[in-house]
């Protein structure tokens, strides 16, 4: 059985490495469409890591929301602006040195925080599995109020988007 565990470990690390490679592709490739595809690959890879960590529900939702909906919209926008899709563009500009300095600061900060946090690996923590049912009960019970607030905000956003889109048409329209 140890051999199987070794295989799965190799698989997980290979997935992580691939995710990093694709993430590099998102910021380094010159064609916007390729970048978008790399981003989709990164999101799918992340979902695979979730599956390996026994968070299947999170993985499914990640794929459904990010790959199925958000990435489709991103690619749709790139394809609608036709010359953006075919053209190659530079991914760096004059602000990149400053960005690197800022980013390395954040990396150092996060790194020290990660190192300092004691990660309690107990048998209870290892066995913890969040089932869909308990998630649903928590959303409808303990966290019902924030859940409802978020849905109200979302509906407000949707209505706002419709109002903004509609206004444009009536101003330009013939009537």
């Amino acid at each position: 059985m140890e051999i199987l565990e070794l295989f799965s470990k190799i698989g997980i690390y290979a997935t992580m490495a691939l995710v990093l490679v694709f993430a590099l592709g998102v910021v380094a490739l010159r064609n916007l469409f390729h970048c978008a595809l790399c981003l989709a690959a990164v999101l799918i890879g992340t979902a695979m890591i979730y599956v390996a960590l026994h968070a299947e529900f999170l993985a499914a939702v990640q794929i459904l929301v990010y790959v199925g909906a958000v990435m489709t919209l991103v690619i749709f926008v790139i394809m609608l602006t036709e010359h953006l899709g075919g053209k190659t563009i530079r991914q760096t500009n004059r602000q990149s040195p400053a960005a690197i300095i800022g980013l390395s600061g954040i990396v150092v900060l996060l790194g020290t925080l990660l190192m300092k946090t004691p990660w309690p690996v107990t048998a209870k923590a290892l066995d913890a599995k969040v089932s869909v049912m308990s998630l649903g009960k928590a959303l409808m019970g303990t966290y019902a109020f924030p859940f409802e607030v978020i849905s109200v905000i979302l509906i407000a956003c949707l209505i706002g988007a419709i109002v903004i889109a509609k206004k444009d048409v009536s101003e330009k329209g013939p009537s």
């Binding site: 529900f57 489709t72 869909v132």
Partner: peptide, 21 residues
């Protein structure tokens, strides 16, 4: 899978991306 149905919906939603490609 205990999320079988959600898995089906999620995986079949990927199909748009290769069509785009």
């Amino acid at each position: 899978l205990n999320i079988g149905l959600l898995y089906f919906i999620a995986v079949s939603s990927i199909t748009t991306i290769p069509i785009f490609m």
